[in-house]
Nucleic acid binder design. Sequence first.
DNA 1: ATGCCGCGTGGGAGCGGTCCCACGGTCGGT
DNA 2: ACCGACCGTGGGACCGCTCCCACGCGGCAT
Lengths: 347, 347
Amino acid sequence: MSPAEQPPAPADVRRPTLNAVAARAGVGRGTVSRVINGSPKVSPRSRAAVEQAIADLGYVPNRAARSLVTRRTDSVALVVPEAETRLFSEPYFPGIIRGVSARLASAGMQLLLVLADDEKEYARLATYLSAQRVDGVLMMAVHSDDTLPDRLEELAVPTVLAGRRGDREPLGHVRADNGGGARSAVQHLLARGRRSIGTITGPLDMDAARARLDGYRDALEGAGLTVEEDLIAHGDFTEEGGRAAMRELLRRRPGLDAVFAASDVMASGAVLELRASGRRVPGDVAVVGFDDSIVARHIDPPLTSVRQPLEEMGRTMAGLLLDEIAERGTGRREVVLPTELVVRASA
Amino acid sequence: MSPAEQPPAPADVRRPTLNAVAARAGVGRGTVSRVINGSPKVSPRSRAAVEQAIADLGYVPNRAARSLVTRRTDSVALVVPEAETRLFSEPYFPGIIRGVSARLASAGMQLLLVLADDEKEYARLATYLSAQRVDGVLMMAVHSDDTLPDRLEELAVPTVLAGRRGDREPLGHVRADNGGGARSAVQHLLARGRRSIGTITGPLDMDAARARLDGYRDALEGAGLTVEEDLIAHGDFTEEGGRAAMRELLRRRPGLDAVFAASDVMASGAVLELRASGRRVPGDVAVVGFDDSIVARHIDPPLTSVRQPLEEMGRTMAGLLLDEIAERGTGRREVVLPTELVVRASA
DNA sequence: ATGCCGCGTGGGAGCGGTCCCACGGTCGGT
DNA sequence: ACCGACCGTGGGACCGCTCCCACGCGGCAT
């Protein structure tokens, strides 16, 4: 009958509540709440007392309690299609996340990472995300036919995309100047005297891939050349896709002297294929990639590539989302950030 | 005076509450709650009515309200030191995250991603994490002197680490068999007839780096060779560190015929340095790396490397944490997962 | 002096769940 | 036929916070 054999540690050490702070500071709950939320309508005297009490007690507000009444969660979800994670090499994923995280942290918001299995799960996910779980959603790697953004829009969940689904993207989104980046890459090849320039595209259901292809076309036309369709081969952002596309290009145009690949990973596949065909890079064929990823620096020869300002993209996405959360409509903007050509040995 | 010019959309569509479900199903709140939480003490009749009402209304429980009373948040934080994110190339970060995410999702828990700026911020972070914001913490890339785990332990926050701080890690943790992986790498070099084998270590304040060095020693001693200290050079898991260490090794032992680097990134630096010194890989010097990262496949020659079961590590970490959350003490286990040597052209 | 204004303040109500107690209805045992 | 056990149930209390209303008080105009 003795209570001797209770569990060793209570482990449920009750943290101080706002009430405790109020009692200790000798003020009412309302005043403590005002101090915490930075209301100006508090006398310096009360404010000091409350701040002292908070420090003494090590008080931290309970988020759940606050959320319950404010109907805000102070957290946003970053949705990443599961399938894409395999492609998330350095620097893309970490870069964006760093930017997002920094901006959110400065606003006191939390970042929820959600890997979405696939399109089928989107309905559940949309419901889930709209059920007052997050204040907004950031979505990466959108495809033209993604339905999640539409669902979220219906449910009035603030949403910002990395990239856009089409030319007229109603939702706020941030992207690199893919067209301009591709153009600078191809212009670089032209400046190096290359004239028979092929391109390996990404999956054309992604705007970034389409924009890079457009940039390729623009650069050629800007130089007074005509775009020849058999110099365009399609990849899927994978190395094997890059190899296959390169093989196809060589079959069609054995004499081409340069290739612009819409990603470094595909470019690395292209380099392997070029070498397998006995060609030298950049001697016979110059190669430019996109992303300035870790492989760009490590393959032989090191790859000339287009760099995106990833952290800034992340920060900007988070910023737009915070705007949209604060006031609907204000975050529905399109931000395009400049790219930079990093010249290395491959072109 | 007319109310005509109100804001266009209310946007604050109140979601159905448990009360609404109860009313529609013609039962009390308690019964609805029981159904939602899978209590057996509900008649089939009531259960069916409630489930129908939930489906009709599209009801989703409010997490904040639930958290407030249960004192659980159904979410865990994944803490990543900001500095480390730069090193998170494929496949490490995405691999672990996929595993963690999968396991947590199956338990209905959320994943909070927290990038910690630095050690100084840990005090704030610990308080923050303990303030009923998360049920537990997963921590990556721990160093021997990391204080966050201690703080979390004091605060009784369930914690699981990727890797351990020292030989006797009191907290639950998951790691690859770093020693065994290194041993297999060096044994592979020995089997190829190499005898003067150097190693480039990681930062020795990380257990993984120490364990890999120990594995290197074990393999040599197991083959009846003595470990010569001037065949050991220290790196920091960066490419430049790998280059510098390789340079040092070549200065000390120009005739060495193999190198085991504790990471692929350092190995790639070593390869560059070897080539700069006029040596062929693997002709003159064989190289083995660790991580089977994306660079391993892309550098020339492709790198023989040690692969870790990343997704499984992630799943296991999440599993241990869930155990610990469910019952203190049960997740404080040490799990070591096997590695696999992936043989390519470099050794 | 008297009234009024406005500032700073205390505290009641309520957010949407869970927990638990008390209650009515069956049913088996005596 | 009566009693107690047990099962399913309804609903009050409460989690910790914000919102908002009402109140006291000092200073200014009248």
